[in-house]
Design a protein around this nucleic acid. Structure first.
Length: 574
DNA sequence: GCCGTTTTCGGCCCGACTGTTTTCAGTCG
């Protein structure tokens, strides 16, 4: 059983305990689940090393349960709990506005044990007979079930962020606001988000709420108060807004950026210092005197911490790193001098090479990689050796046209064949300025075989960058089976980079694997994989992913000056 | 069930909104 599996078991235990009305234990199990899910170590290794209790939130009792889980794949305690709670009540908790108390009442009063039964009971007005339930409650539950059925999944960062930014622009246009920012998981740059959070800091009369619920894309108003409102957009996305006074801006931005786990740790830290942290500020616990709150920086400082960038706020070691002055100096958009991975009309891209180069110049880049597909990828018109030679010539001509305004890298996204060989001859590959090699076929190979295939390609000395290393598509398909530790080791010794493919449904490597690669001494190369000009803007998602992976400029090849690139690329293959 | 700048026992993060209440419990983030 993997980390995810253990976390799921603990989450179910927490739900079952909640339904039994047990206090505190559910929180403990959920906390442990989050830590297990997000930590880098494999739970099986920890169990084998007897090191489970080193994980925060795991003590003797949980360690024992985990040992049983990894040894047998089952847990007696879970089976016991399941037998004590009517089957189906856990499922009911997934309905918004149905918590443990409500679920138990629904069962006791009406024998409801499934979402379908709840839907039917609410539709037939059976709920209003229960004490404390009324017409509105029936409506809300029906709405909640509908949202559950239609929404289902989270939205990609690259889809939600533009929606959020447009919303913010609208608010600024309609109401003069002192401060406004996107918050929540969107500000942290998580690869998918469940909702959009917007924070407003304003000392004037709170007219912004009317503007907020009056946005044309709003389908439903879920809640509306003077300081807090929620809507659901026509595309199904929920948007929450909070309004605070400007003196509380920093505390509120911190609070609503999360993550929840990060915030809980900060508040615990505050408690230990005799302070109370909430969305209005940091206060002395006894006197209620405000200690900080106007900016995030002063809140962290008053807690004895250095400022922690939003992308790091996952309670995965950033708080202790901050206290000890070990935070990374994260790579930023300003450090990026070019894009390694763009497709053109020569294969399945839309723009001409000229258009890509002009766009790159407009973006202030010092280099741009032209990397179309190779021969094996026939269904997208992959280039054969002849056409690639022609494309190299075309690139050199355009280089003459633009002079020293930008360095154009003639390149290829070349296929890694099943046997680990590359799609072009060594001689041809040596003519290229940059070679990205990727897996596009036979995804279902055994892990060892796939790893041999990739490690073989990396060791060939003919590639610079391993493209979209895991092959996953977010929400669509998991990656192929691959031993990344072995891949990183091979990449380090061969001087090959891992790509951070910035296409919005890839983000591959993802944040956690970026951090692992960095720790393994591997350099990352960000590429947008753009097939249209506007997709070159996906660079921001690659940078955010790098930041979430704790990467510094020196861990990212895109920060190297255009004129120094040749050494870093060709030098690697010599 | 976990944990210790208040602690090996006794706490455990904090506040807004809603609905159906006549003072608040439940849910959510």
């Amino acid at each position: 059983m993997d980390n995810r599996g253990v976390a799921e078991v603990f989450d179910e235990i927490a739900d079952l305990l909640d339904l039994q009305g047990v206090a505190f234990k559910p929180v403990a199990y959920r906390r442990a689940a989050r830590n297990i899910e997000s930590m880098e170590d494999d739970i099986n290794d920890l169990a084998a090393r007897n090191a489970l209790e080193d994980v925060p939130g795991i003590g003797k009792a949980m360690a024992k349960k985990i040992e049983e889980l990894v040894r047998t794949g089952k847990l007696g305690y879970l089976d016991e709990l399941r037998s004590e709670v009517p089957k189906g009540l856990v499922e009911l908790l997934r309905v918004p506005d149905v918590g443990p108390k409500t679920a138990v009442i629904l069962f006791k009063e009406l024998g409801i044990t499934s979402v379908d039964q709840l839907k039917e009971a609410a539709a037939n007005h059976k709920l209003r007979g229960i004490k404390g339930f009324g017409e509105k409650t029936e409506e809300r539950m029906l709405q909640g079930i509908q949202a559950l059925e239609s929404k289902g999944r989270r939205m990609l960062l690259g889809q939600a962020l533009p929606v959020a930014e447009e919303y913010v622009e609208y608010l600024k246009r309609v109401e003069p606001l002192d401060m406004v920012s996107v918050a929540g998981s969107l500000r942290r740059g998580k690869e998918t988000v469940g909702d959009i959070d917007i924070l407003v800091g304003d000392d004037g009369p709170a007219k912004v709420m009317d503007a907020f619920v009056g946005y044309p894309a709003v389908a439903d108003v879920l809640a509306k108060g003077p300081t807090k409102s929620s809507v659901r957009l026509k595309n199904g996305l929920q948007v929450d807004i909070r309004v605070v006074e400007t003196k509380s801006w920093g505390a509120a931005l911190n609070y609503f950026t999360g993550s929840k786990e990060h915030n809980v740790e900060l508040r615990r830290l505050g408690v230990s210092m005799g302070l109370k942290l909430n969305e209005y500020g940091l206060f002395q616990r006894d006197s209620d005197k405000m200690v900080a709150g106007a900016t995030e920086e002063e809140v962290y400082k008053a807690l004895g911490l250095r400022y922690i960038e939003p992308e790091l706020r996952e309670n995965s070691g950033e708080i202790s790193a901050s206290r000890e002055g070990r935070l990374p100096k994260l790579v930023s958009a300003d450090d990026i001098r070019g894009d390694f991975h763009v497709h053109t009309e020569w294969t399945d891209g839309q723009p001409t090479i000229d258009a890509v180069v002009d766009e790159a110049i407009a973006r202030g880049y010092e280099f741009i990689g032209i990397t179309d597909h190779s021969e094996s990828l026939k269904f997208v018109g992959g280039l054969d050796a002849d056409r690639l030679r022609k494309q190299i010539d075309a690139v050199r001509k355009i280089q003459d046209r633009v002079g020293n305004k930008i360095r154009i890298l003639a390149g290829s996204e070349v296929d890694i064949r099943s046997d680990g060989s590359l799609d072009f001859s060594k001689k041809l590959l040596d003519e290229l300025d940059v070679v990205i090699a990727s897996v596009h076929s036979r995804f279902k190979m055994e892990k060892a075989e796939m790893t041999d295939r990739v490690v073989g390609a990396i060791g060939s000395g003919q590639m610079d960058i391993f493209g979209h290393p895991t092959g996953r598509l977010i929400g669509e398909r998991p990656g192929y089976e691959l031993d990344l530790d072995r891949v990183f080791e091979a990449a380090k010794s061969a001087g090959v980079c891992m790509e951070i493919n910035s296409f919005i449904d890839r983000l591959d490597l993802g944040d956690i694997n970026c951090r692992k690669a960095k720790d393994a001494g591997v350099v990352m190369a960000i590429g947008t994989d753009a097939h249209r000009l506007e997709q070159m803007a996906f660079m921001r998602y690659g940078v955010v992913t790098a930041r979430r992976g704790w990467l510094e400029p020196r861990n990212v090849l895109n920060t190297v000056r255009g004129k120094d690139l040749a050494k870093r690329l060709r030098g690697r293959r010599s």
